[in-house]
Every structure is written in C-alpha cells, then in structure tokens.
C-alpha cells in the first residue's frame, strides 16, 4: 500500500469514526510508515485544537442594531402589529426577578423593604387588574429599580469625591476612563430601551452597566480606605482589580 492509498483511511482515523477498522494492509502500512504516522498525529492535533478555539464575544449592543434593522424592514412592523394589536411591549417576571436580585445584591438591604412592599402591592394589582395595568406596574418596578441604582451611584460618587485621600494620577485616569466607558454603556442602553422598551437585552444591559458602576465606585472607596489605613498590600490588590475591570 502506498501513502497515497493509505490517505483514504485517514479521515476516519482522525475523527475516530465508530466501527472503522483498518484492514490488514492499511494497518501494516501505518505501522511501518513514519510519514503516515506523523500525518495522522498532526491532523488529530489540528482537529483537537480546532475544537478549543475561542469564540469572539458578540458586541454587547449588537442585538439593538439587529432589532433596529428588523424594525426598519418593510413589512416587519405591519406583521407584528397585526399580531399584537399594536402593543409590542412585554416584560417578563423572570427578568424582573433577576433585576431585583441584582439590585439587592449590589445596592444592599436598605432598599429591600421598600422594593418588597412595592412588589407585593404590584402583584396584588396584577391579580385584579388587566394586562395594561400589569405592564404599567412592571414598568414602574423597573423604573424604581433604576432609581435605586442611580441613588446608590450618586451616594457613592459623593463619598468618593469628598475623600481627602489623594489618588495616584494613573489610577485616577484609569478610574475615569472606566467610569466614562460605563456611562457610555448606560446612555446606550437607555437609548435602546427608549426605542424598544420590551427588549430584555437592553434591560439587562442597562442594569449590568449600573451594577458595574456601583462595583467600581465601591472599589474606589475601598481603595481610599486602604490608603487611609496605610495598607499598601490591600491598596495594590484593589488597584489590580480596578485596572482589570
């Protein structure tokens, strides 16, 4: 058997096709031909490596652009409106629960009682009122959650700006750059929500940006505390996290 003839057996060998067995001639060829042994080994390595190639992340706001193009597509709005009778806004309870969980985890228990009261009262309304009221109620909940985040951010910004601890200019520049990026994401998500209020992706994107901003401000304050205490190791650790974010 020549190497050329043996090549017919290679795909099945490389892919490990179940039930594929080399005949005697092919087996003898493989056992004696270093070149074909290397070929099979190389192709297997290629296949294994290919399966581990990293996926590139889809740009976070790509869905908004897809949705915008769909909305601009002739006929799309008409079909959707016929189906929904003109109403395309929809919020889901799982999303609301996720947003609330995110809010509790990040902003703290101080607002828990307030949001909890609001949720139960909304649930009561939902049980007795129609769909419009339910949607309105959920919109109110989301707005409330957004307000809480914004209050938290305002408070944290105040604490951070009132500190008398000087920050290294390089760290400060990184912080500002990260805050600008997050603010940009918040603005973009808000704009997306305005054009498409029912988009879960836009909702998640907005709250994710809020969460990142709260986390960044919390880290900034923690950094100032470490510096005030003179804990260089603690400060270095926080700076490391900040510059990675």
């Amino acid at each position: 058997m020549t190497c050329h003839e043996f090549l017919d057996h290679v795909p099945a060998l490389v892919e490990g096709e179940p039930g594929h067995r080399l005949d005697g001639a092919a087996e003898r060829h493989l056992a004696s031909c270093e070149s074909c042994q290397r070929l099979v080994a190389d192709l297997r390595r290629i296949t294994r490596t290919a399966a581990t190639l990293d996926g590139r992340p889809v740009p976070p706001d790509a869905w908004h652009r897809v949705a915008a193009r769909l909305n601009a597509e002739p006929g799309f709005a008409e079909v959707g409106n016929r189906r929904a009778g003109g109403a395309r806004i929809s919020y889901s309870w799982p999303w609301l629960a996720a947003a609330a969980a995110l809010l509790f985890a990040t902003v703290g228990v101080a607002w828990y009682a307030g949001l909890g009261r609001q949720s139960s009262s909304s649930a009561g309304v939902a049980g007795n009122a129609g769909q419009d009221q339910l949607v309105q109620s959920i919109e109110n909940e989301l707005q409330l959650a957004a307000d809480h985040y914004e209050n938290a951010i305002a408070g944290l910004e105040k604490v951070a700006s009132a500190s008398d601890v000087p920050l290294d200019p390089e760290v400060l520049a990184t912080l500002r750059k990260n805050l600008d990026l997050i603010d940009g994401a918040i603005d973009e998500s808000r704009a997306a929500l305005r054009s498409q209020p029912g988009s879960r992706v836009a909702q998640e994107s907005l709250f994710d940006a809020f969460r990142r901003k709260v986390a960044l401000l919390q880290d900034t304050i923690a950094l100032m505390n470490e510096m005030r205490k003179g804990d260089e190791a603690g400060a270095a650790r926080i700076i490391g996290d900040l510059t990675k974010s």
Binding site: W63, V66, A67, L70, N71, F76, A77, E78, V79, G80, N81, R82, R83, A84, R88, S90, Q196, G198, S199, R200, V201
Partner: peptide
C-alpha cells in the same frame, strides 16, 4: 408573526 421577542430568543 413578526414577534420581536421570538427574534430576540433566536438571537
């Protein structure tokens, strides 16, 4: 039916 939520799910 042009359900945007369905397109988002597909996405």
């Amino acid at each position: 039916q042009g359900d945007m939520d369905a397109y988002e799910e597909l996405y």
